[in-house]
Design a protein around this nucleic acid. Structure first.
Lengths: 229, 229
DNA sequence: TATGTTAGTGTAAAATAAACACTAAGTCAA
DNA sequence: TTGACTTAGTGTTTATTTTACACTAACATA
């Protein structure tokens, strides 16, 4: 079967920059290409948009198919359409970025594509296509977003300590924070619920666990509350 | 001539939300459709992306063709691709927003499409396709952007008074500012050059004119300077 | 020359952000 | 069991930033 149009049409794809956080480092999931062009090179997970699915759906589907990751925070990033970004033909790609709780996915890192792996963002090799550029954009966006919206929680396990949270912010924003000031600020937003639990299996005083109050967040967001860190 | 592909491809278009500022009001340029679907309805200027032009080029070309506007501030906004947004077939559209100095374009509002007109953003009728949604997105983005980056100048004539500037900010952000505090803040950014000229033809004390220091802006931007208002 | 309209200017009070150091709780090894 | 080590947890003071606020100056017009 084939499809014919009066004018040439670019191919339309989605690509996903998937961020995770582990061992105090920001990671990104890449897959190794097993077909030309750029065979053997690492690339962002992604693929063609089907004619009967939305862009968001396409991004989620490709993510699931290529990395086994589903039900994550996912947002559109930017659409790239430079000429020659794919050597075969004109391809326009809608880039997304996703934030995943690595604790959920470290064990079974891949389902379909055995060639998926996590890279520290500073150890990423030269990527296929213009994926370097997309990754750089995603990092920029992540930094901008994290600063003003409480999306950092998407990268942590459901229960976390304030130190973990601070560490995450420091990593993503490449900036140190004062412990007391950080705690004051983050707690004053009223988005954290203090749990009756503490860390387990640590070789020092165990810290209290917290979780993110999604409900409260939605309420405050509606009222135009300011979540700047 | 025709083009055949193995899989169905969505059509790819660009749409532009063009903002102007005049008479103390934020305006948006719309064109009246002269073909189905939505014949007679108002819509955002836009059209198909050619297979040999970048997305930015397509946006600029369509803008020029449909409204006669060229050489303006133009940035990608969001890509919409919901099913059924165009009743004819699957169409994915990369939306842009543009800021124009209305002083330059009020006289010859349109070149090609005689059906172009400026609307106050609060007087916009129900638009074709999902263009209402795109316009709402663009407004949101404009507000967010103006707050943190000095792009408001793109909407003013090259020489302007501080009152005009304040008025613009108040309109876009839907928020009043204290005159003295506003002037202090905006001048302290060091982005304005005080000219040796004053307003003409006003029935009261004439205000000093300023212009935006693009050079200085680029310098400070590189150094990660904060332009929050 | 009196009236109307907008331009232009500084200071004090309040709120926010930044700097800063010790005690508490637990693990581990001697 | 005790001492050493590691991270958790907690308030106050100072500096900086933001807000609130009101009068005189300049010019046009009647």
């Amino acid at each position: 079967m084939s499809f014919t149009y009066q004018y040439a049409r670019p191919a339309l794809t989605v690509d996903c920059v998937v961020f995770g956080f582990d061992e105090g480092e920001l990671k990104v999931m890449l897959i190794q290409r097993d077909l030309p062009p750029f065979e053997g090179k690492w690339a962002l997970p992604g693929g063609f948009v089907r004619v009967d699915e939305t862009l968001d759906d396409a991004a989620r589907r490709e993510l699931e198919e290529e990395t086994g990751i589903s039900k994550v925070f996912l947002e559109q990033l930017y659409t790239v359409g430079d000429l020659g970004r794919d050597p075969r033909e004109r391809v326009v790609s809608v880039a997304y970025y996703a934030l995943v709780k690595l604790s959920d996915y470290r064990i079974r890192p891949t389902t379909d594509a055995r060639n998926a792996a996590w890279f520290g963002v500073s150890d990423v090799p030269k990527l296929a296509f213009d994926h370097d550029k997309i990754l750089a954009l995603a990092l920029q966006r992540l930094q901008g977003k994290v600063r003003y919206q409480p999306i950092g929680f998407e990268l942590l396990p459901p229960k976390f300590t304030l130190s973990q949270l601070q560490h995450l912010y420091e990593t993503v924003l490449e900036q140190k924070f004062d412990k007391r000031n950080f705690r004051k600020k983050i707690l004053s937003m009223g988005l954290l619920i203090e749990l009756d639990e503490i860390e387990q299996d640590v070789a020092h005083r165990a810290a209290r666990l917290y979780r993110f109050d999604e409900r409260k967040y939605q309420q405050l967001k509606k009222r135009g509350f300011n979540f700047e860190l």
